[in-house]
């Protein structure tokens, strides 16, 4: 369970998160929507301790993320993250990309790590690309590689940050299908997305971000079909 309690964060003078409260239950898929700059990515970074917070608390499986004595490296193994820009490691082949962290972070043997990598890559449909360098693959394939790379750590949670925004339209489908697959397998997911259709079909709950707060939170039937706040209504009218 991820518990976000009254989290605030600024970059210098810019207030990015103004008191976020959100609880993600085991097996739940929450979609996060909202305008550009409203702080969606920043919240994900904070959950993973990639950015510090100013006040409030984030607790993952009972562990206070931003407590000084918390081992963030151990914590991050448990939380997979995939970014808008796929950030595949360009100097490594597909297989090596996925096998690296099981080996150096989890301390698996080289053979074991490769086996994990192979099965995760097959999982996302890249079983035939093991020895290819990322620069030879399409954006959609690189994005699935990034997903496999995160899954190889066997995380309990997955955070997705607009993973389809940088893709050509015809490649969006294959990545969303992968996300659906994970959701069907019961993965706990927090998905920042501009794909309203996906949010409606796949998520258990939808959170609408506006200027650093969650302005509306509820099942898709409520937030997407019958939004209460004017900001949500405006936003949805614009992206449709």
């Amino acid at each position: 369970m991820i518990e976000i309690k009254a989290v605030k964060k600024s970059f210098g003078d810019l207030k990015v998160l103004n008191g976020i409260d959100l609880t993600v239950d085991k097996g739940e898929v929450i979609s996060v929507i909202g305008a550009s700059g409203s702080g969606k990515s920043t919240m994900l970074y904070c959950i993973n301790a990639l950015e510090p917070i100013d006040s409030g608390q984030i607790v993952v499986d009972g562990v206070d993320v931003h407590n000084k004595s918390t081992d963030v490296n151990k914590l991050r193994r448990n939380i997979g993250m995939v970014f808008q820009q796929w950030n595949s490691f360009p100097h490594l082949t597909t297989l090596e990309n996925v096998a690296l962290s099981p080996r150096i972070v989890l301390g698996k043997s080289r053979a074991e790590a490769r086996e994990i990598a192979r099965s995760q890559l097959e999982h996302v449909g890249l079983g035939d690309k093991l020895d290819v360098y990322p620069s030879r693959m399409s954006g959609g394939q690189q994005q699935r590689l990034a997903i496999a790379r995160a899954l190889a750590m066997e995380p309990n949670y997955m955070l997705f940050d607009e993973v389809t925004s940088a893709l050509d339209p015809e490649l969006v489908g294959e990545v969303l299908d992968t996300l659906r697959l994970l959701s069907d397998e019961g993965m706990t997911m927090l998905v920042v997305t501009h794909e309203i259709g996906f949010a409606r079909d796949v998520s258990d709950r939808v959170a609408f971000f506006h200027e650093g707060i969650i302005e509306e939170l509820g099942p898709p039937a409520q937030v997407i079909e019958h939004p209460q706040s004017v900001h949500t209504q405006k936003f949805l009218a614009n992206v449709r």
Partner: peptide
């Protein structure tokens, strides 16, 4: 960040 998010 991707590297750190994998626990490195």
């Amino acid at each position: 960040r991707a590297a750190r998010s994998l626990g490195m």
